[in-house]
Amino acid sequence: MTKRMGVDDILEIARKNRAFLSGITVSGGEATLQLKFIIALFEAIKADPDLRHLTCFVDTNGHLGPKGWARLLPVTDGVMLDIKAFDPGLHFRLTAQDNSKVLASAHTVYAAGKLSELRFLAIPGKTDTANEINRLAQFLKSFDAGIRVRLNAFQHHGVRGQALDWPKMEKAGIEHIMAELNAAGFNNVITPALYL
């Protein structure tokens, strides 16, 4: 179900619920496809005396170019960036997109001091291979060791099409990836509390 809403509509909702909020995060779909809107929204929040204490975060797949980031980052408090795969061929097979832009985005956001979290979706037999985990650990070395990495486990909730035939990611597999990252010196790794 989609609904057309303006910045004012969102501000109204935020005001009504402000006692329960510490910030807002835009996600999607892909939030940065609505770049103009989210910039206007974040600017309006920061300009509103009732709401300016709220943090403004973006949850993105990283397919935004340098010009887009130059406009978005100044009004954004933090970014959660989702990396689907490191092997370019695998990334293309999973998303029909090249991943060079995603990896570059991670560096751009990090350089601005706003990379809040890197997310990695572990899919059994696809992105949980030794090669992928190794490349993830290598990639993380360009950031400080405290970088927060969230490991998401592929599940079937909300999944459509052929991906429903893929097995779900089990806890043991996630714990194995975490152990590998820990061994590479990255200890701020978050794993799911539930596998649903």
């Binding site: 619920n17 006692a19 329960f20 909020l21 510490s22 799911p192 509390a193 539930l194 649903l196």
Partner: peptide, 19 residues
């Protein structure tokens, strides 16, 4: 139960309710 993935939400809900 998905709140177990984000226990901070419980803190926020509690503060919101009390305030």
């Amino acid at each position: 139960e998905t709140i177990k993935n984000n226990p901070e939400a419980m803190l926020q809900l509690c503060k919101g309710a009390l305030s």
